[in-house]
Amino acid sequence: MALLEIKDLTLRFGGLCAVNALSLEIEDGSIRSLIGPNGAGKTCVFNCLTGFYKPSEGEMLFQGTSLVNKKPHYITYLGLARTFQNLRLFKEMTVLENVMSGMHCRTNAAFLTTVLRTKGQKAEEKHIREVSEECLDFVGILDKKNYMARNLPYGDQRRVEWARALATQPKLLLLDEPAAGLNKDEKARLIKLMHRIRDERSITIFLIEHDMGLVMKISEKIFVIDYGVKIAEGTAQEVRDNPKVVEAYLGKEEEEESA
């Protein structure tokens, strides 16, 4: 059974159809990409999956559980974590605190245990800290754990987002344009990191990307959408040769970065 299954997903805003009858499947342990020109509705798909938008029609099954009408926090609890296209760190908090947020849904200390600072609560706090540090170590910025998030360079901020998503202990990681704004070196490291995440932590990866080169290198299978409709699906080679994809990309000017 596929880890994630999207069937006829449709999202309308007023009269505008942002996503139109999209169907796709993501197998456990794979790396999949969703590409398409600007404004094709890629981020909308993610927002539906993570509960930020309510789809107008269609079904989304994660390990057989429907994600429709579920709140974002519950979807994260189920094992879907995401990063944001424009970084959404807690800027005024330290890097470590940022990553600790991911552990929230895996822990449960409440009012009384907190005030009494019971043994269980202390152990849990320690556990939160350890897991978070381990995640920071994994992405390679453990040495910066006490920095304010806003004081980090852009590339490191991205890594904090990754560590934060990993701390939620997901089964499926949704990455929204992970390579945006990175230089060539950083991109190479990013590819390595994605492979490590999949291989060492057995987390499935589904990403949206603009950078065709990166996508071609990393994903075993690619979905292409344009105007909310899936126009192609297959390996890098197949997609590249598909005339519809060529038309979608070359038929019009590439615009500047936008949602």
Binding site: R12, F13, G51, F52, Y53, K54, N69, K71
Partner: peptide, 8 residues
């Protein structure tokens, strides 16, 4: 007023 958006 119209419903603000389909955001949940």
């Amino acid at each position: 007023g119209r419903a603000e958006s389909e955001r949940m």
